[in-house]
Measured scan of single mutants.
Amino acid sequence: DHDVVPEDKFQETLHLKEKEGCPQAFHALLSWLLTQDSTAILDFWRVLFKDYNLERYGRLQPILDSFPKDVDLSQPRKGRKPPAVPKALVPPPRLPTKRKASEEARAAAPAALTPRGTASPGSQLKAKPPKKPESSAEQQRLPLGNGIQTMSASVQRAVAMSSGDVPGARGAVEGILIQQVFESGGSKKCIQVGGEFYTPSKFEDSGSGKNKARSSSGPKPLVRAKGAQGAAPGGGEARLGQQGSVPAPLALPSDPQLHQKNEDECAVCRDGGELICCDGCPRAFHLACLSPPLREIPSGTWRCSSCLQATVQEVQPRAEEPRPQEPPVETPLPPGLRSAGEEVRGPPGEPLAGMDTTLVYKHLPAPPSAAPLPGLDSSALHPLLCVGPEGQQNLAPGARCGVCGDGTDVLRCTHCAAAFHWRCHFPAGTSRPGTGLRCRSCSGDVTPAPVEGVLAPSPARLAPGPAKDDTASHEPALHRDDLESLLSEHTFDGILQWAIQSMARPAAPFPS
């Protein structure tokens, strides 16, 4: 592969990997390779389809078979030569091979799209000592099968071997295949498990690692696999990028399955594409389908809103127990993405979901129960707010008499603000006073009005108090039968009158 990737590009890729991570280095090298001529790309395919690569990765054979028959990708048995050289000459001794072996032994695996480039050397060096003999053996194999790289107009793939297949390693990572398949204008990513390549439709969760975000852009890794992070704060999961590491605690105790298979379609829109997988259930989501939507993949363990709600429900009964003089119970939860139609709101002032922060849900004790107040519409209280300059209440639009249902020339009671006709409430011909108009209920007259088809109010509507207090003497005590009587009149003013009279009014101040 030294004929494909020059030394300066190799060093530039290593520097970019240390600065921005393996995914960015892979993407940059792939983009550079696509700008080369067809001879360089053909050399790339020839390096990929060597015999030892085909033996190690069985899924490469179907890719090789898909090439046109007129494309010669065979390799000479006596060494490598550029395709432009007409004579089959043995190339001179390859010093770059020693360079590659020494550099890969030092860096474990470079971040390139060629056999030198995919593992994360920093994480491997940190986690190597417990498994040094086995990992050293794996390093000797890295130059042979560490990076199976493929690129063409139909298929483009980048393979990364790992030393996680050490025997006896619980939940060992089998390997990473960062794979971009450009077929019919689409893009897919796969993962390699035990020599087999699994596409998103049959993606397997190998051991402790999972394909957290099938994305090839942005600074985030394709698999949430930063070796420096180790395990999740809650004892979460091992990262795919942690090559040759000792077994780590796999999943939280509440995880239903340690080796679950995540779905390959969004649980909201039932469509495929780039998904984020939940650590607590097999569901996966688009970032845009979450509520609120996320802009980037959160670091650490992530769970959907259903799993978060289940966790909150487990903690909430203990938080609601009476604990005198104790601060509110704080339950730190990872930043969760909410699927459509589901929402768990945190306290005000918290950062938005999706940031690399930890939301704190506070379970406050329930407030003391209070008697429910009568629910009145805002339009129902409008007549009470229509007060004239002299303190006389004006008529609201649409006000109707509670007896006849007519809204023409209605009066407004100064005591309960109900609309009424003087002739309907006082049919006996009582003279109307000039000021202080009161309806039949507030004036103490319980004589029913002779209106055909309208039920008369119940005599129990009024329960006047002592006459010594004029204001308190007109406080009506309405009961269920009074409400039914008012409802039978089918008037809004009657219902409003009952609601206003049912509310307690402050006692009249004593004259000074």
Score class of each variant (00 low, 15 high):
259 H>C: 07
333 L>E: 14
358 T>H: 12
480 R>F: 12
428 A>M: 13
478 L>S: 06
404 C>Q: 03
496 L>D: 00
297 I>T: 05
397 P>A: 07
299 S>L: 12
403 V>N: 13
439 C>P: 00
462 L>T: 09
381 L>V: 11
482 D>R: 01
377 D>I: 13
481 D>L: 02
317 P>S: 09
489 E>C: 02
331 T>R: 10
307 C>Q: 14
495 I>H: 00
357 T>I: 08
257 Q>G: 10
463 A>I: 10
354 G>R: 11
262 N>H: 08
464 P>M: 13
393 Q>N: 13
297 I>N: 08
241 G>S: 11
487 L>S: 01
355 M>G: 08
296 E>T: 10
344 V>Q: 08
441 S>Y: 06
507 A>F: 04
342 E>I: 11
509 P>W: 04
451 V>G: 12
408 T>D: 02
274 E>P: 02
479 H>A: 09
361 Y>F: 09
278 C>Q: 07
453 G>N: 10
461 R>H: 15
299 S>P: 05
272 G>V: 11
500 I>N: 01
305 S>H: 13
306 S>F: 07
473 S>Y: 14
290 L>V: 13
300 G>Q: 05
302 W>D: 11
418 A>F: 01
463 A>V: 10
331 T>Q: 09
438 R>Y: 12
249 P>K: 13
446 V>I: 09
477 A>C: 13
426 F>Y: 14
476 P>M: 15
373 L>D: 07
322 P>S: 09
361 Y>P: 14
301 T>I: 09
314 E>F: 13
344 V>A: 06
416 C>V: 02
481 D>S: 03
371 A>S: 10
310 A>Q: 04
328 P>T: 12
504 A>C: 05
446 V>Y: 08
358 T>M: 10
458 S>Q: 10
363 H>E: 01
338 R>M: 01
246 V>D: 01
478 L>A: 07
397 P>D: 09
455 L>K: 11
447 T>F: 14
307 C>Y: 10
358 T>G: 09
290 L>W: 14
510 F>Y: 08
324 P>H: 09
411 L>V: 12
510 F>T: 06
352 L>H: 12
311 T>N: 10
345 R>F: 11
258 L>W: 06
247 P>S: 11
305 S>A: 06
361 Y>A: 06
375 G>L: 01
345 R>M: 02
354 G>L: 14
375 G>A: 09
307 C>A: 15
424 C>W: 02
392 Q>D: 04
246 V>P: 11
468 K>E: 04
389 P>Y: 14
285 F>Y: 11
407 G>P: 13
392 Q>I: 11
252 L>T: 08
426 F>W: 04
449 A>Q: 07
362 K>V: 14
309 Q>G: 09
300 G>S: 03
391 G>E: 06
403 V>M: 05
263 E>P: 07
280 G>H: 15
446 V>L: 07
500 I>E: 00
247 P>R: 10
